[in-house]
Amino acid sequence: MLLFAAALYPEAAPLIDFLHLKKDPAFRAFDLFTSADAALIITGCGPANAAAGTACLLTARPPKSSDSFVNFGICGCCSRDTAIGTPYLACRITDAGDGRTYYPDLLYASPFAEAGITSFSKPVSNPAALPRLPESSAPDPGQPIAPSGRKQWAYGTLPYGTLPYGNLLFDMEAAACYQSARHFLMQHQMIFCKVVSDYGTSGRPAPGAVADLLKEPAASLTAWLSGLPAPDLSPDPFTESDHEAIRTASERLKLSEAMHAQLIRLMTYASLTGHSPAKLLAFFAAPEFTCTSKKEGKRYLEQLKYRLSGQADL
């Protein structure tokens, strides 16, 4: 499942179009657009809306370990050397409010450039006046560090130290989306894709222009996301009949919660070492099998453990 958060409808429009999302009329707090394998929420502008919308989306669609969350939209850029319409993935997100910086994992190879982004609570009208990072204890980041002469630490076209807050980009939502989403997702599941729409001095583009500007980046983004792996980090080691056998054995052996957990651990080991939990537990499902107490059940559990730990033939 792909889960998107965009601040405004024009930012969401290309994604809604590409992914054939339909508005969910039953969803009241925010505008939510969904399909079988994607959901998109329009949060509204600013950090409070972004955090609330993100939390609302991730509560309504609780993410699995194979899902991805994407905050998509426009951003400002501190450098006029960067073309309008350039998409970036954020590798560094600074909240201008408290100065904290966050680092989403970027594990998967992507077609996008990467940059740092600073999130403000109100629109930036004069990026030149934004505070620079204190550099007193650091080397001059404008000077090459690597012998090759490459300015490796530069984001985009400008060296880190010359950028406000060390970041090339600025917006109003990324930091809030991150802070909200991290309660629901692993670091590698959060993606922040921002497209340069202005340099902070000329105001935001008109809604129609935003949708046009984001069309191509949205197409690249959806193409990339569709090719991303969806690793299942909690694979189920059991078949349906294994599950049934475990349930039955647990009931008939009168296992406590802790003993039931122990049985699951044992059967996980059995399954991963090529044994069939359903076959191993078939004995306990037989009509003639009786177990009269939890104490007796515990003894059977110990016998299973003894057999599975390699001390007796299975």
Partner: peptide, 20 residues
């Protein structure tokens, strides 16, 4: 190269997948 203040800002984040 991504400049950070302290290694724990990256290394000690919550919800990391050691495996991935």
């Amino acid at each position: 190269v991504i400049v950070i203040d302290h290694y724990k800002d990256v290394f000690n984040r919550t919800h990391q997948s050691f495996y991935l």
